[in-house]
């Protein structure tokens, strides 16, 4: 009886392996389903951001940089290549201005090319004058 049970288990495993679907997906040809809380690239709500710099202070990887000249003239830059996708900036912001998107950050061989300027008040100030 044990002999038969073991052979049946082997047969079942064989059938499952031949007919079941693959565990892997051929990305990027197929869409990748990311979980809901996936920590992807950073985005900024420009209306809410006041340039306080708490997100820059709490970033462990120096992925954010703030150049501040006065209370309303500042520039916030994001370096996706240095970012650790840890969520500290999202938690540090008191106004929920900076959040993680659900998108994978872009991959590239040149880290300089994917730098994102999140908010640039300095340029506006220059163009106003």
């Amino acid at each position: 009886m044990q002999w038969l049970k073991k052979r049946m288990r082997l047969l079942l495993a064989l059938v499952e392996a031949l007919t079941g679907e693959a565990e892997t997906v051929s990305y990027p040809k197929t869409e990748l389903e990311l979980p809901k809380g996936y920590r992807g690239a950073i985005q900024l709500d420009e209306e809410k951001c006041i340039g306080c710099g708490l997100c820059v202070m709490d970033c462990p990887a120096h992925g954010l940089e703030l150049e501040k000249e006065s209370k309303s003239v500042y520039k916030l830059t994001y370096y996706p290549a240095r970012c650790a996708y840890c969520g500290q900036c999202e938690r540090a912001c008191h106004r929920q201005a900076i959040t993680h998107t659900n998108q994978l950050p872009g991959s590239t061989t040149d880290p300089e090319s994917i730098i994102v300027i999140l908010k640039d008040q300095k340029e506006q100030e220059d163009s106003d004058e």
């Binding site: 979980p35 809901k36 809380g37 996936y38 920590r39 650790a84 996708y85 840890c86 969520g87 938690r91």
Partner: peptide, 20 residues
């Protein structure tokens, strides 16, 4: 991964509580 958003780097804890 469904709960925390990451398969290996879970980033669950913060000082004062949990993140999700």
């Amino acid at each position: 991964e469904e709960m925390s958003g990451g398969r290996v780097a879970h980033a669950v804890n913060q000082i004062g509580g949990v993140r999700f």
